[in-house]
């Protein structure tokens, strides 16, 4: 199964893939020219694999965050079974960020499943009411998707999100 991680710059896409991948991650990171408050930024893709029982695997692709790389979004989305949008909870308008990616991936989301990972939270056990704005947005868009706070540096946290996505795919089969 192919899963695609997307979301805004600095939301933790590359980190999440590196955290759970069972192979050395193929990444295309370059120094940012602009002040992104990070050392590197993805300019083409990240690729990792998570090996599952019975020899199957999840192929994990990460997109660049910036919209100038939107051509990569389309390339990487082909054939994906699921999408993970990571939202940086500390950005000024995280719901608008989520909307930007939902809109841009809309044509693929109609035929696949979505999970939303909320990153940069002070508390990984975010109260449900803090996540409600994301659920309300998704409800408004008529999208059913799990929304979980995650720490991209923590394997169990990322794995939980992947499991949630896998479960929603199975439910929709």
């Amino acid at each position: 199964m192919k899963f695609v991680f997307t979301g805004c710059v600095g939301s933790g896409k590359t980190e999440a893939i590196k955290t759970v991948s069972d192979i050395p991650v193929i990444s295309t990171e370059e120094k940012p020219s602009d002040d992104l408050e990070k050392q590197t930024t993805t300019v083409a893709l990240d690729y990792g694999e998570l090996h599952l029982a019975q020899g199957s695997k999840l192929e994990l692709y990460g997109t660049p965050g910036q919209s100038r790389f939107a051509y990569m979004w389309k390339i990487l989305s082909e054939g994906a079974s699921g999408f993970i949008i990571l939202v940086n909870h500390k950005r000024p308008s995280p719901v608008e960020d989520l909307d930007m990616y939902v809109e841009n991936f809309a044509e693929y989301l109609t035929e696949s499943n979505l999970a939303v990972g909320v990153t940069h939270t002070d508390d990984i056990n975010l109260m449900t009411n803090e996540l409600s704005k994301y659920y309300e947005y998704l409800k408004h868009k008529n999208i059913s998707a799990p929304v979980l706070p995650i720490d991209p540096r923590d394997a169990s946290s990322v794995t939980t999100l992947l499991q949630a996505l896998t479960v929603s795919i199975e439910q929709n089969l």
């Binding site: 193929i26 990444s27 295309t28 370059e30 300019v43 083409a44 790389f69 051509y71 990569m72």
Partner: peptide
């Protein structure tokens, strides 16, 4: 040009 930056980064990888 942006595509070129993606491609040469991938080539470097």
């Amino acid at each position: 040009g942006t595509m070129g930056s993606s491609m040469i980064s991938l080539a470097d990888t």
